[in-house]
Design a binder for these strands. Sequence first.
DNA 1: TTCAATATTCGATAATACTCGAACATACGT
DNA 2: ACGTATGTTCGAGTATTATCGAATATTGAA
Lengths: 100, 100
Amino acid sequence: MRALTHPAIEDVTLTQVLYALSDPVRLGVVRQLDRGGEATCSALDGGRPKSSMSHHFRVLREAGLVRTKTDGAAHMNELRRPELDRRFPGLLTAVLAAIT
Amino acid sequence: MRALTHPAIEDVTLTQVLYALSDPVRLGVVRQLDRGGEATCSALDGGRPKSSMSHHFRVLREAGLVRTKTDGAAHMNELRRPELDRRFPGLLTAVLAAIT
DNA sequence: TTCAATATTCGATAATACTCGAACATACGT
DNA sequence: ACGTATGTTCGAGTATTATCGAATATTGAA
């Protein structure tokens, strides 16, 4: 597939991150990635169409929250936690704590 | 003027807060309120029309971020920091630290 | 009570986002 | 190569949001 674009961590903006996290679906994805470590796209749809999930993953990717590695035909997603913790100390921790 | 509605802090949702903070104008307002303590609406417009600012203040109010007290003809706005810190520990601190 | 100052509301416009089906691309196994 | 599985891209439809001017309250002061 086409190369998936990931911004450098320095180019990630706060407003972009906050916006990406402000959607319930995406916030749920982030929560699950934080717990499960990593997952494929289809493992995290809640019965939603693939096109919808693809959209949300793109938003998360472009906001710098998620890194997608192509693993065969599947796409493995992981939170860019260490990088984000350096960039915005305490932010992800607080958000993840807030969703319980 | 009409009574300005403020949600109880328990009714404030994370996604609402994150969305409200994801706009550069509103994030700037929050930053200034954090530093200056409180301010009128017109004190925080960046040359923007009052109707636009009124919109943004409404979003901030309804998200539970800002409390607006009517003080004569003017409206005094303040961050609901203590309440928010209880509701979402560390969140506002991290966000405010990120904007420097 | 008339005027000036402050802010909200209304109406219109433009931009952006969410959702989903359908078509397309890629990788792997047979 | 063919078929299957996994995601992405495209296009359309709907909804939400930002922005601004104009009109409308509300307050305090002359």
